[in-house]
Design a protein around this nucleic acid. Structure first.
Length: 287
DNA sequence: GGTCCGCATCGTCAGGTTTT
DNA sequence: AAAACCTGACGATGCGGACC
């Protein structure tokens, strides 16, 4: 769990705190942390919330074989243009997971996705032929972890969202119980080299509260409630999304590592098989 | 104890993708 | 088209181990 980590304040940052998050910050730096010139003030107080660090492994040890022959591959067309090749290994070598199927996701050249997510052929997408776009289409993005895991048979992973995990109830209730003071008491603000800091004590058990104070014409500080609420909700959702994304990424990596282990074993077994067949062949040849 | 380093984790932003 | 979602990148922070 994190403790109260920072109080960030800035003055004259209007326009840097936009609802769509397209601030002018470069390189991932928090745009709210910088000091600007003139203009209304934004004061940001950040407390941190409890992080329910729990990684549930849903990918089970049943790994897929990737050894395929051309004859036993069956393609399954997916709605959005992806094709899943389903195959079962026909090697004489069987693993304990021999009944599992192999899933390969490959982009279909004629069903590249347009930016609107609609599949289209190469001909029908000729309205935008910029090299950049073509290049981007060539480099089709790696499927999301959720997609990969879904295709690997871990659909329950994707559905096992935050709500079902312990420790998330607080976060949900947090967003629904947000309240904002319309006016920040002037005493709570301390001038520090042109910056204004809002002192906020970190509540036990965490909880992210971000507030902006804007100065009006009279120099009074007030919090634009709607803007703040929207931003806070967006940050909260994104925070949870990032958490979920990292969890899925971990599972994906774990899955890949298991797969490597299985493939190494299969490789070893195939080498042995080849070796014994060679010996058999040489024996029969000499007889 | 103090300092440095590497690692893990987190929140946030930006921009792409998917859904509505 | 807009909203929602997803994820790579970045910086901040905390922790444990090695070293002095």
């Amino acid at each position: 769990m994190l403790n109260l980590s920072c109080l960030v304040a800035s003055v004259g940052m209007e326009g840097m705190v936009e609802e769509n998050g397209t601030s002018g910050g470069a390189g991932g730096a928090d745009p709210l942390a910088g000091a600007g010139a003139a203009g209304p003030a934004h004061v940001v107080a950040v407390t941190t919330m409890q992080a329910p660090a729990q990684v549930q492994s849903v990918i089970q040890a049943n790994q897929q074989s990737v050894i395929q022959t051309a004859s036993n591959i069956q393609s399954v067309q997916l709605p959005k243009g992806n094709v899943i090749l389903v195959s079962k290994p026909s090697s004489v070598i069987h693993t304990t997971q021999g009944t599992l199927q192999t899933l390969q996701i490959k982009p279909e050249p004629n069903t590249l996705m347009s930016s609107q997510g609609q599949s289209c052929s190469d001909d029908s997408c000729s309205d935008d032929e910029s090299p950049k776009r073509k290049y981007r289409e060539m480099l089709t993005r790696r499927p999301s972890y959720r997609k990969i895991l879904n295709d690997l048979g871990g659909a329950e992973i994707a559905d096992n969202r935050m709500g079902s995990r312990p420790g998330c109830e607080n976060e949900v209730s947090l967003s629904s119980s947000l309240s904002f003071a319309p006016v920040i008491p002037a005493g709570a603000l301390q001038a520090e080299g042109g910056l204004h800091t809002l002192s906020v004590s970190g509540g036990a058990g965490g909880g992210a509260i971000v507030q902006y104070a804007t100065t009006n014409q009279d120099g009074q500080f007030y919090v634009p409630e709607d803007q703040t609420r929207k931003r806070e909700l967006r940050l909260l959702k994104n925070r949870e999304a990032a958490r979920e994304c990292r969890r899925k990424k971990k599972e994906y990596i774990k899955c890949l590592e298991n797969r490597v282990a299985v493939l190494e074993n299969q490789n070893k077994a195939l080498i042995e098989e080849l070796k014994s067949l060679k010996e058999l062949y040489c024996q029969q040849k000499t007889e």
